[in-house]
Nucleic acid binder design. Structure first.
Lengths: 113, 113
DNA sequence: TCCTGTGCTACAATAAATGTAGCGATACGC
DNA sequence: GCGTATCGCTACATTTATTGTAGCACAGGA
């Protein structure tokens, strides 16, 4: 099996041989820090280092890789003097996650531990 | 840094030192195959092997690990003679992902490649 | 008994993430 | 100019996670 490193385009091969966009999206989002990055950028742009701080000091290597993926996916953009921020599309995606916040609260109360 | 293998409980330490449930949830969902599994179980239970087929022949090792995580998180359950299925809580979570399907369609058209 | 399918595991090989250090570029104050 | 600080980003060795393959014990059904 061919292994893939960073590109969404290539991922769509693994995530979905039928080319279903949902598979490519789930594959993109199902990588460490991707959801977290989108979450942290939810209401203000962050510099790469601020983002790293927000993300619990995740290693810059993987953050850069994810930011690269997200920029290719047109969900995040780098504004020259302002750091990283969600694109219009990225903001739209984030709105799908808003209910997650409330859900997470309920979830943490209902689970066994 | 202590590394964690499978438990959600432990993950909440890394995902969120402040114990914010959203971090634990993002951390759980941001692992390979987790989102995909929830997606594949969306409208019918699947046996472990059917799930594996649905998930593009992912290795049983990681699928079992994710299923174990998801069961601990009370999002998925194993019904003795019917395979794996979403719990009520898991179905509730999945409803938050429904808009993703439509979004994915738009997204795949708007991105550069 | 012999199949077949279930949930699940072992284990070596490979890929991804981590942690630390540092690069070139740019912008400050002095 | 010179230091100093920050920016986005990268190298690289170590550690962790995932993959791929094989197979286990168990439970029916024929």
């Amino acid at each position: 099996m061919p292994k893939q490193t960073s590109a969404v385009k290539k991922r769509s091969v693994r995530g979905s041989t039928s080319g279903r966009p949902i598979m490519a999206l789930l594959d993109l989002l199902g990588r460490r820090w991707t959801l977290r990055i989108l979450w942290e950028l939810r209401d203000q742009p962050l510099t790469s280092r601020a983002l790293r701080t927000a993300c619990d000091e995740a290693s810059p290597t993987v953050l850069q890789a994810r930011l690269s993926d997200l920029r290719q996916a047109n969900l995040v953009e780098l504004v020259p003097a302002g750091g990283y921020r969600l694109t219009a599309l990225g903001r739209e995606l984030h709105e799908n996650f808003l209910p997650l916040h409330r859900f997470a609260e309920r979830w943490s109360k209902q689970r066994a531990n």
